[in-house]
């Protein structure tokens, strides 16, 4: 018990919350970026532009089928060498998470749009709407309703996945917890408890939020 009290000292908690802040910061930026990129890619894949959609689809499939850990390594070590850009750990983590999650989201968005009945598009077009109008006013609102739950669970995955970036020493929650129990092994269990509680709190909140959102859309 004493271990717990000592482990949750103000100093340690402050350090842990600094890590939590990096987790949230990296996650939020990656969520926004990957949503935008994922939506564009998913749409390009859905509309079936010759060659382009095929190439985009193939690249998305490649990325979706690779371990995120590999993508993180690649972005951190590979990019400076190939592109001549020096990435710090925060940027590298954001780039890696964005690349991976946009591919995942693109697939969700494509299948979401595809799941709306094709007849509706034709009906809207025959009523004089342009393709884009029909998409925007008729198809997308319906598709969005179906997409919200999988998109949010993908965001939850992103928050959890950001913990993998400890491997490149991104100073996020997991890494800071490791630093604390690395310097005093009595704090190991308290730190695991703290990790579980903090990650759970963020992810659970996020998924509850999505449920409320999904209900309102209906």
């Amino acid at each position: 018990m004493q271990n717990f009290i000592d482990a949750y000292s103000w100093l340690n908690m402050h350090f842990l919350f600094e890590g939590l802040w990096v987790t949230i910061y990296v996650s939020v930026i990656s969520v926004v970026l990957s949503f935008i990129i994922g939506a564009i890619l998913g749409f390009v894949r859905y509309v079936k532009v010759k060659y382009l959609s095929m190439i985009v689809g193939f690249v998305i499939d490649l990325i979706r089928n690779l371990p995120l850990l590999l993508i993180i390594f690649f972005m951190y070590f590979g990019l400076p060498g190939t592109l001549g850009i020096r990435l710090n750990t925060v940027t590298a983590a954001i780039v890696a998470l964005t690349v991976f999650e946009s591919a995942m989201l693109a697939e969700i968005i494509r299948s979401g749009i595809a799941s709306v009945d094709h007849g509706q598009m034709e009906a809207a077009r025959s009523n004089g709407m342009t393709y884009l109008q029909a998409m925007w006013y008729i198809i997308l609102p319906q598709a969005l309703r179906r997409m919200v739950p999988p998109i949010v669970s993908q965001f939850v995955s992103l928050v959890k996945d950001s913990s993998l970036a400890t491997i490149i020493l991104l100073p996020e929650l997991m890494y800071h917890a490791q630093i604390i129990y690395g310097q005093n092994s009595n704090y190991m269990i308290p730190m695991f408890v703290a990790l579980a509680v903090l990650y759970f709190a963020i992810c659970f909140l996020l998924s509850r939020l999505s449920r409320a959102l999904a209900k309102r859309l209906k």
């Binding site: 951190y76 070590f77 590979g78 400076p80 060498g81 020096r86």
Partner: peptide
């Protein structure tokens, strides 16, 4: 594990 690669890749 990472240091030599980080140096060689210019990080």
């Amino acid at each position: 594990n990472t240091r030599m690669s980080l140096l060689k890749n210019g990080n």
